[in-house]
Amino acid sequence: MNARERKMEPMVSSRFVGVVSFVLAVAIAALCDAQTFRGSIAGRVTDATGAVLPGVTVTATNNATAQSRTTTTSDTGDFSLPDLALGTYTLEATLQGFQTLKVTVEVTVSRVSSIDLKMGLSTVAETVQVSAAILTLDTKSTALSNVIQPKQVQDLPLNGRDFTRMLQLSPGVAGTSVNGVRTRGNNYQIDGADNNDAFQNIAAVNQGGVSGIAGTLLPIEAIDQFSVQSGGSAEMGRNAGSTVNLVIKSGTND
């Protein structure tokens, strides 16, 4: 190996490392972008006196698909079930010596449904089931979020059947401008995937067509939930206005 080849070797190595680092950064960013279209359930389990209960088995079962996720409370009685498909869930908490508790929880897009469970002592096997859905609050995020539920999505008289009209149902919105940010300041997503026109920075779906190419129209009937978030965390990112997330309907066991 001559002197010139020895001099070029570290340059090639550093370029290779730089390219690999860039590819990994892009891949990680893409994965992060696709983590916002589902919901989560989190909370704490205590006994009748308010003392935390570790080791409680908490299971969330989707009422439409019967799919379930299970976790166990920590030493502080806390539990978390992230990345759940949207829908209505039956949350069940079980621990030997305590009454089995069942409650109904609604999981919505890009939200953490926070719920605290209180279990009573039991001398015999018995179950306490709360038939009405419990009011849940997202206490984990500082984002301002508005979720349009499936029935509203289907029943609203939208001009031109354009989903962007639902933006106006959120506070701080004028037309498609959120909190005074220009109309191109929104980050549009479908099931957490990018839905932005690279040139105009508007929703890629539901355009009238560019340069004679027919546009793609998304039927309102295909939308399950519509979410608008502003002032969110770095998880959302990209645009200063808001993150507009459409969730497409999925199948059930019916």
Rank of each mutant, 00 (worst) to 15 (best):
T104S: 13
R182P: 02
S131L: 12
S21H: 08
S177F: 00
A29F: 11
R238C: 05
I190G: 07
G39Q: 05
I223T: 04
M11G: 02
T46Q: 06
Q96S: 11
A203H: 07
G55Y: 07
V205T: 14
G241L: 08
G232R: 11
N62F: 01
L84R: 00
Y89Q: 06
T127V: 11
S145E: 03
P82K: 04
T216S: 14
G180A: 03
G50Q: 05
R38Y: 07
T100K: 08
R238K: 11
N63M: 05
G77Y: 00
G237M: 07
V124Q: 12
T136A: 15
G50D: 06
N146I: 07
V45H: 03
G241H: 11
A203L: 06
S40M: 12
G185W: 01
V173R: 03
P171I: 02
S233P: 00
S68A: 12
I148H: 02
K249G: 11
G251D: 03
Q67N: 12
T59E: 09
E126M: 15
L31R: 06
T252C: 00
G208L: 10
A193H: 15
T164Y: 02
N62T: 02
L84P: 02
A48K: 07
M8D: 12
Y188V: 01
V153H: 04
S141W: 01
P157M: 00
F163G: 06
L84N: 01
G209W: 08
G43M: 04
V45D: 01
A34G: 05
N159V: 14
R15Y: 13
E235L: 14
Y89W: 03
T127E: 08
D194L: 10
G208F: 07
R15C: 10
M1N: 05
P171K: 04
D224E: 10
V130N: 15
K140T: 14
L81P: 03
F79A: 09
V103Q: 10
A25H: 01
G43K: 01
L95A: 14
R182W: 08
G77S: 06
S110E: 14
Q189N: 10
Q35S: 14
I213T: 10
I223Q: 05
T176V: 12
S230K: 06
L81G: 06
K151N: 10
N187C: 08
L84Q: 00
T73H: 01
